[in-house]
Amino acid sequence: MADPVERPADQPECPSMQGAGLLPPELRAWMLLLAATGAVEQELRAVVKGNLDVSHDEFLVLCLLAEEPAGLRMTRIAELLGRPKTRLTYQIACLQHAGLVTRQSVCGDKRGVEVALTEKARRLLKEASETLSETVKRALTQFVGPAQREAMCALLPDLAASPDLEAN
């Protein structure tokens, strides 16, 4: 079994790691995964700000749009990110002001607004992609250890049988 994940001295162990509380195994596993992804997000925030000069939430919008070349409706972006539409409107305005997205009305729908990446945003994402990818991989290596793997396999038993995971 691999060594426990090292963490900075000022970062206490996640309480869910102990497993002696009231949570059922599925909820405990979910909490372990949330803690790990939260730690990865923290690592990514500074890199996103430094490379793209946007907030983490704005970066998530850019990532969604990068996967949809034709753009997405604002209501769909809000649904996918679990964000209030009012907050998303502000984020889109900031991205538009920075020249990273365009907004246009949806034909035949007075209230519909579609958002798409600009060429500037595509170029910046492409230029930053290697650094962002390395940051995610490094953070995952640092924060996802045996407990998180075990939690993921408990939530998704078919994943435990995956030959890709067994090789690691």
Results as ranks from 00 to 15, higher is better:
A66H: 04
R87Y: 00
A139S: 13
P25A: 12
S129Q: 15
F59C: 01
V47M: 08
L44A: 14
M31Q: 15
E67H: 08
A46W: 10
A160E: 13
A116R: 14
R7Y: 11
D164W: 01
L33T: 14
L88S: 03
A66K: 03
C107H: 06
P84M: 01
G82K: 00
A147N: 07
A2D: 11
E114S: 10
C14L: 03
E68I: 01
S129D: 14
P15R: 02
T135C: 15
R123H: 13
Q91D: 11
K137R: 15
E130T: 12
V101I: 09
T75S: 15
A29W: 06
T37P: 00
T131C: 10
L156V: 15
V101P: 01
T37M: 12
T86W: 00
E127S: 07
A98S: 11
A116F: 00
N51F: 07
A128G: 12
E79S: 09
S16G: 09
A2H: 11
V5H: 04
P163C: 08
A39Q: 14
T89R: 09
A161W: 00
G21H: 11
W30P: 00
G71T: 13
S133R: 15
E166I: 10
G145R: 07
D10W: 15
T75H: 10
A93Q: 12
L22Y: 06
A36L: 09
E127R: 07
G50R: 06
A128V: 12
F59T: 01
A20H: 12
A9T: 06
V101S: 02
V61F: 03
D3A: 14
V54P: 01
A36E: 09
T141C: 12
E43A: 15
L140I: 10
Q42C: 12
S129W: 07
G108M: 07
G38V: 11
K126N: 13
R123K: 12
G145P: 04
A20V: 14
M74N: 05
R83Q: 10
R28P: 08
C94D: 06
L165S: 08
P69A: 14
L132I: 15
E134N: 15
L23Q: 11
R28D: 09
P15C: 07
L34R: 14
Q148A: 07
A147C: 04
D109R: 02
V115C: 09
H97I: 01
V5D: 05
E26F: 07
L140H: 04
Y90G: 06
R28W: 13
S16M: 02
L65Q: 03
P24K: 07
F59K: 00
P146F: 01
L23F: 14
L27Y: 13
E68N: 15
V136K: 07
V54K: 02
P4K: 08
A128P: 05
A20P: 00
S133P: 00
C107N: 09
D10M: 04
L52W: 04
W30E: 11
S133M: 12
M152R: 02
Q91K: 02
T37V: 14
Q18P: 00
L100N: 03
E13G: 05
D164T: 10
G108A: 07
E26W: 05
E166K: 13
